[in-house]
């Protein structure tokens, strides 16, 4: 590996990759929880594959974070729930199938858009490889949301309203336009947050065109730029349950680990 590839990323880039990695970690968890609860076996099989893909991607993102000086034990097994920087919608386990589909669809797509914006050489090939996985995740979500928008439009719209603010906070504040996005300024990404927000919403407007589902509007004060936590890419101090953190860290299975 070249010396350049070993160079330090700016702190904002480390936080950005940490938030993507933790979002994928929680996606893996939520796909796992729903693995046997989908409406049919085919959804369960797809969901199980999605979960495995996410965990594989997390492993690579953690590897890069470790090279950037982030402690491996902290990443994997030694964290408080409030130290996870996952997209806020993934804090909770969705109680119904349409809610779950909206939750993972928005989170997985947003995480992909943030990843795909990275232009740093440490990600060469890796993001392309992740894209091979993500095609099937996003296609599954969109195909499912198309049918749900016809069968259960109210449930889909309610879930969109519930999760949109948290997802916009994960993508970032509207004030991060072309000249103001610190990651673009640092040459770490090549697509400003404000542009990603627009593209993200536009995707769902197109997907739900002709259905009874309305996609929430983009408002510049969601998230409130003054309240926004750059490290955890959200507003407020919500977090996953301790029980979920224990599962992510393998607390109850630790006695079976072969060192």
């Amino acid at each position: 590996m070249s010396a350049d590839a070993e160079s330090r990323w700016p702190a904002v880039a480390r936080d950005y990759v940490q938030a993507i990695a933790d979002t994928k970690l929680l996606l893996g968890q939520r796909y796992g929880e729903w693995m046997l609860k989908g409406p049919n076996l085919e959804d369960d099989i797809s969901g199980a594959s999605n979960g495995q893909d996410e965990i594989g991607q997390v492993r690579q993102l953690f590897r890069l974070l470790e090279k950037q000086g982030v402690d491996r034990d902290w990443l994997e097994t030694d964290r408080e729930p409030a130290e996870y920087a996952n997209a806020q919608p993934l804090d909770e386990e969705a109680e119904a199938w349409p809610t779950f589909m909206v939750q993972v669809a928005l989170s997985d797509r947003a995480a992909w858009l943030l990843l795909d914006a990275i232009r740093h050489e440490d990600f060469t090939g890796m993001v392309q490889k992740m894209g091979e996985d993500e095609y099937f995740h996003l296609e599954h979500h969109d195909a499912r949301l198309e049918t749900l928008a016809v069968d259960q439009p109210e449930a889909v719209e309610a879930a969109l309203e519930r999760y949109f603010p948290g997802i916009l906070a994960f993508i970032g504040p509207a004030t991060y336009g072309a000249g103001e996005d610190p990651l673009v300024e640092a040459d770490f990404t090549d697509r400003a947050v404000a542009e990603i927000r627009g593209a993200f919403r536009e995707h769902y407007v197109d997907l739900f065109a002709g259905t009874d589902v309305t996609v929430p509007a983009l408002t510049d004060d969601v998230p409130d730029p003054d309240e926004w936590d750059e490290k955890r890419r959200r507003s407020g101090d919500g977090h996953i349950d301790q029980r979920v953190a224990d599962q992510l860290q393998g607390v109850t299975n630790r006695e079976y680990v072969i060192e």
Partner: peptide, 15 residues
């Protein structure tokens, strides 16, 4: 088993 052609393609691939 799928509710649409688009879903059927994804399920076939995944399965």
């Amino acid at each position: 088993q799928a509710d649409s052609d688009r879903l059927a393609r994804i399920y076939a691939h995944r399965t």
